[in-house]
């Protein structure tokens, strides 16, 4: 998958990469987040913006050795900060 085919949007900020998957249908949020995490040299922090709690993402993160913490959790948006386990 090329970067232009990756669903959602992303930007680099002072606190690391941000991946915005809000408004996407499943499984596009999971695909977008995992695509960015699997890029060579990516160890985080990566902030994922999601409009639902990504229950199906967590086993995949754990399988790939990534930790997460909630930066924001509301009814309409979840922000996860992701870091590669050391």
């Amino acid at each position: 998958m090329n970067i232009v085919d990756v669903p959602g949007s992303h930007w680099q900020a002072a606190d690391g990469l941000h991946v915005d998957t809000r408004g996407l249908l499943p499984p596009d949020p999971m695909v977008a987040i995992l695509w960015h995490l699997e890029r060579p040299g990516q160890f985080g922090p990566v902030t994922a913006h999601i409009d639902r709690n990504p229950v199906h993402l967590f086993p995949e993160l754990h399988e790939r050795g990534w930790n997460y913490e909630y930066a924001l959790e509301t009814e309409t948006e979840v922000q996860l900060v992701l870091r590669k386990a050391t």
Partner: peptide, 16 residues
């Protein structure tokens, strides 16, 4: 780092 208590967070109401 992971927050097990809120692992399912707001989705717990949707996860049986």
């Amino acid at each position: 780092m992971n927050n097990p208590g809120s692992f399912l967070g707001g989705a717990q109401d949707r996860l049986l």
